[in-house]
Simulated scan of single mutants.
Amino acid sequence: MERNDLIRKWLTGELSPEESDAFEALEEASFYKEIISDAAAFSAPDLAEGGNSTDLGNLLSGRRTPERKRNWIRPMMRVASALLLGVALYYFLFQQELVRVETGVGEKTAITLPDASSVTLNALTEIAYNKADWDKRRHVQLEGEAFFDVAKGARFDVESPLGSVSVLGTEFNVRQRGRVFEVRCFEGQVKVVSGSHELVLGAGENFRISDGGVSSGKNTYAHPQWTNNISDFQRVPVAEVFAELERQYKVKVTLEEVSSGQLFTGGFTHENLELALKSITEPLGLEYSKRINNEVRVKPREH
């Protein structure tokens, strides 16, 4: 029996002897019992010990507050304790169903969501979704970059710190790195909302916000190249390119007398650091040197 079903039957006193043993074996069983115990012990304080100013005045003058005027307090406190219990159990029964998946430096992974939609995560990316609530709401939280192949069905939402994407079933890529938010649509249509910007992208179109600047255009490829271990860029500041290099390789890049806003169009492989560095530096007239502790220094090429 599922954990949530065991807990619900325990709350309603419907556990069989075998199910009771299974409940007792749950790691969090003692915690749930403690919540119930605390709620049961919770009672309204006597107004003679801590009431309002009117009650205190009555005590000082020797008068007692009529019993009928304080009868409502204890039922209300019981309601409050029941609400407190409900909120606590809701959190531990349902919020624990939040599934998180994350990748490290140079790591990619692919997962399948409950509706058979697939997500491929790029390096240093995290997504989260509520498995228990998925049938009611297809919603994913994203930080980093991921490619989505969404199964047909109800609306599918991807939320990031800088914007959201909504679809009914399509293929698209979402990239959120620092102050950069980029969406590329590869199939169907997607709705993009970021601040005051709201638009619909068709297949082959992209939308990008970087440090407040907004741009849109056409995709160069029919599929995100990073899923093939290649990072590609279209007129992107070189600082952002090197930041992606750091995510794919365990290196720290230091720019010396290089304008971080210099634009770069091209790409680099995720499988060979030397080749990747050459792919970035040579077109821009730069050179690099590798130092100890995985440090790479980049500066203008000497003539």
Score class of each variant (00 low, 15 high):
Arg3Lys: 14
Asp5Pro: 01
Asp5Lys: 03
Leu6Ser: 02
Ile7Val: 10
Trp10Asp: 04
Trp10Glu: 07
Gly13Gln: 05
Glu18Gly: 02
Ser20Cys: 05
Ser20Val: 01
Ser20Tyr: 11
Asp21Ser: 10
Ile35Val: 15
Ser37Pro: 06
Asp38Pro: 03
Pro45His: 10
Asp55Tyr: 00
Asn58Ala: 06
Leu59Thr: 03
Arg63Met: 00
Arg63Gly: 00
Pro66Thr: 00
Arg68Val: 01
Arg68Pro: 00
Ser81Ala: 15
Ala82Asn: 05
Leu85Phe: 09
Val87Trp: 11
Leu93Ser: 07
Phe94Ile: 11
Phe94Val: 11
Val101Arg: 04
Thr103His: 10
Lys108Leu: 08
Thr109His: 09
Ile111Asp: 00
Thr112Trp: 04
Thr112Phe: 05
Val119His: 00
Leu121Asn: 06
Leu124Lys: 12
Ile127Gln: 00
Ile127Asn: 03
Asn130Pro: 08
Lys136Ile: 08
His139Cys: 07
Leu142Thr: 06
Lys152Tyr: 06
Arg155Leu: 07
Asp157Thr: 15
Pro161Lys: 00
Ser166Leu: 01
Ser166Gly: 09
Leu168Lys: 04
Leu168Asp: 01
Glu171Asp: 10
Arg175Leu: 15
Arg175Gln: 13
Gln176Asn: 15
Gln176Ser: 12
Arg177Thr: 13
Gly178Cys: 03
Val180Cys: 11
Glu182Ile: 03
Gln189Thr: 13
Val193Glu: 15
His197Lys: 10
Glu198Ala: 15
Leu201Asn: 02
Asn206Cys: 09
Ile209Pro: 03
Asp211Gly: 09
Ala222His: 13
Pro224Leu: 04
Trp226Leu: 02
Asn229Gln: 11
Asp232Met: 06
Arg235Ile: 06
Val236Leu: 11
Glu240Asn: 05
Ala243Gln: 12
Ala243Asn: 14
Ala243Lys: 10
Glu244Thr: 12
Gln248Tyr: 13
Gln248Ala: 09
Leu255Ala: 07
Glu256Gly: 01
His270Lys: 10
Asn272His: 11
Leu275His: 13
Ala276Arg: 02
Glu282Arg: 08
Pro283Val: 04
Glu287Asp: 13
Glu287Leu: 01
Lys290Val: 14
Ile292Thr: 11
